Simulated assay, not measured.
Amino acid sequence: MASEPILLFDGDCGFCGRTIEMVRRIVQPRVQFVPWQYADLAALDVTEARADREVLWISPVSGKVYGGPRALSAVLMCGRRRWRWLGFVLRVPPANWMASGVYRVVARNRHRMPGGTATCSLPAHMRGNPDC
């Protein structure tokens, strides 16, 4: 198991990649960012379908996997002090309900977001564009 938490993201998605770079620069979390396409998913107990559907947080202590807004909350809580409160807020109602809804809309439409392309909307096994 890794010594730092791992955040798996879609390395073929331009929007996802740009978002990760922004988080690295602004939030500065202590986490390993790994495109799921380069991860040993079986060792992390994650399916390709789940990794393609949502961003995933893997705890270095328990090995537990959290997805979507819960993963984003964990990233914020491991970041610079000024971001930790937002990570906490995203875990409690009603903020977690709203975050889940917003996350679903963004995840389903990431190919329409800045940096995304139509190829980003394809399932992983159908993608051929490395610049997606």
Rank of each mutant, 00 (worst) to 15 (best):
F88I: 13
T117F: 08
E48N: 04
R112F: 09
R24G: 07
K64S: 13
Q32N: 13
L86N: 04
M77V: 06
F33S: 05
V34D: 03
R110N: 06
P94Q: 02
S62K: 11
R53W: 01
S100A: 14
Y38H: 09
P35N: 08
L41V: 15
V55M: 03
R70H: 01
S59M: 08
G67H: 05
Y103A: 02
R25T: 13
M98E: 04
C120Q: 02
L86A: 15
A71R: 01
A99W: 14
V55R: 00
K64Y: 08
R91T: 13
Y38D: 14
L72N: 05
L44G: 08
P93I: 09
W97M: 06
P114K: 07
W97R: 09
Y66E: 00
R81I: 11
T119V: 11
T117G: 09
W83E: 06
M113I: 14
W85A: 02
I26W: 15
L44Q: 12
A95L: 15
Y66R: 01
R30E: 14
V75E: 04
G79H: 11
G116V: 07
D45W: 05
V89K: 04
L56S: 00
G67A: 06
Q37L: 05
P60W: 02
R110K: 07
G101F: 10
V27W: 11
T117E: 05
R91V: 05
V34L: 15
P29N: 05
L90A: 08
R91F: 05
G68T: 07
A99R: 11
A49P: 04
A39K: 00
R104F: 10
R25S: 15
G101E: 06
I58Y: 01
T117H: 09
A118F: 12
A95E: 08
W36Q: 00
W83L: 03
V92Q: 09
V89C: 15
Y66G: 00
W85T: 05
M113W: 15
G115P: 15
C78D: 07
V105N: 01
P93M: 06
V23F: 12
R70W: 01
P35M: 06
M98S: 09
A42M: 09
Q32W: 12
A51P: 12
R108V: 06
R80D: 11
A95H: 10
C120F: 00
R91I: 03
Y103W: 10
H111K: 03
G63S: 12
W97P: 01
W36F: 13
S121N: 13
P114E: 06
R30A: 14
V105I: 15
I58R: 09
C120E: 11
A107E: 01
R80C: 03
S62Y: 06
G101Q: 10
